[in-house]
């Protein structure tokens, strides 16, 4: 924990970003599963869940923004850590591990909600895969900071 690149506020921000994406996804799935008899409401909502995949994908961009801006702010910190004996390999492993733990927490929260609402979990699993890819790509950014 002490050697982590994350501060408490960063962890909190990342968790909120994940929860927001999962939350929107659950909301779409839940609304789809409802039987709405109002035509007006149905057409209004249809215009959104027709584009569910696109909207959710666009929302995942907030996670990219988070990774990008956080790592950019930590440039000097990474360099200083290496100066005092840390290795880039361990920094990356710790970073990936911590991101995965936060993702895990968000996923468990979303899983509990989907079970309570009785909707499919498949979409959220796909979404988690996208986030894992983002984590792996962003970890490559850390390597660049080795030579400040």
């Amino acid at each position: 924990m002490k050697k982590s690149l994350f501060r408490l506020i960063d962890r909190f921000e990342l968790l909120i970003c994940y929860v927001l994406c999962f939350g929107f996804n659950i909301m779409f799935d839940y609304v789809k599963s409802l039987s709405i008899d109002s035509y007006l409401l149905q057409t209004f909502l249809k215009q959104f869940y027709d584009y569910q995949a696109v909207i959710i994908f666009l929302l995942t961009f907030i996670v990219i923004i988070f990774h990008y801006q956080m790592l950019n702010r930590k440039k000097v910190e990474v360099y200083c850590k290496i100066l005092v004996g840390d290795t880039i390999r361990f920094i990356i492993i710790r970073y990936i591990f911590e991101c995965l733990v936060i993702l895990g927490i968000a996923f468990v929260i979303s899983m509990i909600i989907t079970v309570i609402l009785g909707i499919s979990l498949v979409d959220n699993i796909y979404l988690s895969c996208i986030f894992v890819v983002y984590i792996l790509i962003s970890s490559r950014m850390v390597i660049k900071f080795e030579n400040f």
């Binding site: 961009f61 907030i62 801006q69």
Partner: peptide, 21 residues
């Protein structure tokens, strides 16, 4: 990157307001 994301987020809220209106 951030500019693009802000643009997309703003577009989502604009689309929402447009459909509701």
């Amino acid at each position: 990157m951030i500019v693009f994301s802000v643009l997309l987020l703003l577009f989502l809220s604009n689309y929402l307001v447009f459909i509701a209106a």
